[in-house]
Nucleic acid binder design. Structure first.
Lengths: 157, 157
DNA sequence: CCTTGATCTCAAGTTAACTTTAACTTTAAC
DNA sequence: GTTAAAGTTAAAGTTAACTTGAGATCAAGG
């Protein structure tokens, strides 16, 4: 552990591409860690760059920070992640991507059938997913059952 | 225009599946409109249900409310949308879906090549997209150039 | 010693799309 | 005439992932 290899905030920010404010935020959230100089400034170990690359990749896949934290927590404590670790994770990510792709394709197919069927009034249209909105009965409101993965994060629902 | 066919807040809420608060919000945003009773309560015309189905569908596709408003504004003013209107819109939506699917597939392919290449240390990994993060030079930080459509709405970037 | 630039902390702001709360008012029913 | 259900407004709250701003402090160079 040669202590001459510690990185400053500026170093890590430049090299990771993350703003200093984001790094502070990630530290406050427990996603990364840093020691302090006597004067109170952060000193990052080199491996924080690996963690940040991991975080960047996971975010690109679409994980929330909470999920990223879980993934990071499940990584081996002391050692560097090995091939098996990495494969477990990428399999998980791949599954998520496949799900998202499948959901979008279902939507697209629904749209296509909609174009073809000529339901101009949107009655019974696959895209609206509230089958009863034109009904005269007071059935329960249709569930909003479209791909959750794709929704922009709403309030609770 | 027989005035006996107006719908109350509760009617529209039940039939559209939207909460009353959402309907008030949509009205305040100019997405839907309503007249008022002498007492001040909203009276919706029946065609608001069609508009709401449209809004629901567009939201499912991933449009923001601003975009939905634009689409609605571009719909014919007086007449009911015809097949050509509907086709123009669904073509637009289909294009968006295709873009999103393509972006996800690129991500998935990147992941696959990553699994295969064994770059366990995440160096030069396709998924991180900040090619220089391990470099010793102070190059500009890598652009976050992954599919914008997929990103959860961040701050500005 | 002084200036400059990098950092620090803590609180508040940002965006989207609504929801929640508080305090009333209408309307319909009994 | 009273009550309960449904509706109204305006303002503030919610979530995620950070950013911005204010007001210090640190560290290095001259």
């Amino acid at each position: 552990m040669d202590s001459r290899e510690l990185l400053s905030m500026g170093d890590v920010s430049k090299r990771s591409g993350y703003a200093a404010s984001a790094l502070r935020f990630y530290e406050s959230e427990g996603l990364i860690s840093a020691t302090r100089t006597p004067g109170g400034r952060r000193q990052f170990e080199r491996n924080v760059l690996r963690r940040l690359a991991f975080i960047r990749a996971a975010s690109n896949i679409g994980l929330t920070l909470d999920e990223v934290r879980e993934e990071l927590d499940r990584l081996p404590a002391g050692r560097v992640p090995n091939r098996a670790d990495w494969q477990r994770i990428t399999r998980h990510w791949r599954g998520r991507l496949d799900d998202q792709i499948a959901a979008l394709e279902r939507l697209r197919d629904g749209l296509d059938s909609c174009i073809g069927c000529g339901c101009l009034s949107l009655q019974r249209c696959q895209m609206t997913n509230s089958g009863d909105w034109m009904a005269t009965t007071d059935a329960a409101p249709g569930a909003a059952n479209l791909p959750a993965l794709l929704r922009r994060p709403h309030q609770f629902r």
